[in-house]
Every structure is written in C-alpha cells, then in structure tokens.
C-alpha cells in the first residue's frame, strides 16, 4: 500500500491536475503551479545529489574490493576531496564561529571558500576541470575523421544520398565554397531549410507523440518503471 499504491496515486493526482491546470487561469491555480514547480526544483536538487553519491559509491566499491586499477579510483577521491575541502572550508569556518560565539557578522550570503580560499575552487575549475573536460570531448574530432574515412562508402543508393548531402553541407559551410560559387552555400542552406527541416519536423512530431503517450501511461499508472524494482 505505502510502497506501490500511494506513489501511483500521487502521480495520478498531481499529473492529472497539472494537465487541467493549463486551462485554468485562476489565481489559486497559478499559485499551485508556482509552488509545485518551486518544490520540484528543490527536490531535483536532492535527486542530483543522490546521483552524485552513486557515482562516488562506484569508485568506493572498486577500492574496497581491490578491483584491478583501483589505484585510479583513489585519484577520483583525491580530486573530490581537495575540491570539496577548498569549497567547504569557508562554510566550516562559519559554522565553527557560529557555534563558538554566534558571531553577528556571520554572512549568510557567500559562495564557496573562506576569506583566503575563495579562489581555490575557481583555480581547480579553470586549470583542471576545464582543460580535462574540453580535451576529453575534443578527442572525438580525431575519431570522427577516422570514422568518416573508414565507413563512409557509397555502397547503396541510400548511403550515396547520405554521403552527397554530407559533402554538400560540409562544403557549403566552408567559407571557401562561397568564393567558388555563391550557389554552393545557398544550396547547402536550402538542404538545411527544406529536406532536413521536413525530416526533423516529422521526427519531432513522432517523438513528441511518443512522449505524450508515455506521460499519459505514467499518470494512469500503467508505466511504473520510475518506481524501481519490487
């Protein structure tokens, strides 16, 4: 009852109300949406922390079970520990002051870090997180070039269509093509604005109808995957 029926009932009542709410412009109806979205936003913050915890936990299990390469998981903890320490040192300091003397100068509004540590997290963000993240994704540039070379062959009519469209769009987006003939970028623009747009619109309509169907299934309790097992 508490485990299955109540959550399904909550989803039904909340879901159905906010479908109807869209058509009810009254003040109290608007207020319900304001409150509910505000609460859900805060709850999703909690959910996000849950997600972070499960990632941390994966590496913890690796270390505890001494799985091959668990040394690298120690590095995860090193990065995590240093960043959190630099970020929270100011909060810890403030909490300490608060408990020790309840200082009146206690600042509620401050971001991470203490007086001398404020830039620590920014430094890590700029010189560790930023370059590592940007580099990881830029590696894809090499892979896509190599994949284009190895797989892009005009084996069938369909493959040829894909290839020709890709080549025209790619070349049309290169400034050089305009120097050769203005018609090339214009043709690329046309492909984007008509055939491409038509397909993307059809996909959009199809996907949206699917999403709406799923939403209805959730509201009426047919789809319960979000409740997890048992």
């Amino acid at each position: 009852m508490l485990k299955r029926t109540v959550p399904v009932a909550i989803a039904f009542v909340v879901g159905l109300w906010f479908v109807i709410q869209y058509f009810v412009p009254a003040g109290w109806s608007q207020q319900s949406l304001t409150d509910a979205t505000n609460w859900a936003k805060i709850l999703l913050g909690f959910a996000y922390i849950l997600g972070l915890y499960s990632l941390v936990h994966v590496h913890w299990l690796r270390i505890r079970r001494r799985q091959p390469g668990y040394g690298y998981s120690l590095l995860v903890y090193l990065g995590l520990g240093v960043t959190v320490a630099l970020g929270m040192v100011g909060e810890v300091e403030k909490a300490w002051n608060l408990l020790a003397g309840g200082s009146a100068s206690f600042a509620d509004f401050q971001t991470y870090g203490g007086p001398n540590w404020t830039s620590g997290v920014d430094w890590i963000y700029t010189y560790v997180l930023y370059p590592a993240s940007a580099t990881m994704f830029s590696i894809l540039a090499f892979f896509i070039a190599s994949a284009a070379y190895r797989t892009f062959r005009a084996r069938t009519l369909e493959a040829a269509l894909l290839l020709v469209a890709a080549a025209i769009v790619m070349f049309g987006r290169v400034p050089l093509s305009a120097a050769i003939d203005q018609a090339i970028p214009q043709f690329a623009d046309w492909i984007m604005a008509y055939p491409n747009m038509a397909v993307k619109r059809a996909i959009l309509i199809g996907v949206t109808l699917g999403m709406v169907a799923t939403s209805l299934r959730i509201i009426f309790g047919i789809e319960r995957a979000y409740l997890g097992g048992d």
């Binding site: 922390i49 995590l80 960043t83 929270m88 590592a132 993240s133 990881m136």
Partner: peptide
C-alpha cells in the same frame, strides 16, 4: 581521466550545497 571525474564530482557537490 580519473582525476577529472573526481574534480568534476567535487565541484558539483560544492555547488549543490550552495545552490540547491
């Protein structure tokens, strides 16, 4: 790669406290 994952998690946690 692992250092990046750790730092990313740490940054997200710190921000989650302050913002959420």
């Amino acid at each position: 790669e692992h250092l990046y994952v750790g730092v990313g998690l740490g940054y997200s946690l710190v921000l989650a406290w302050f913002q959420y």
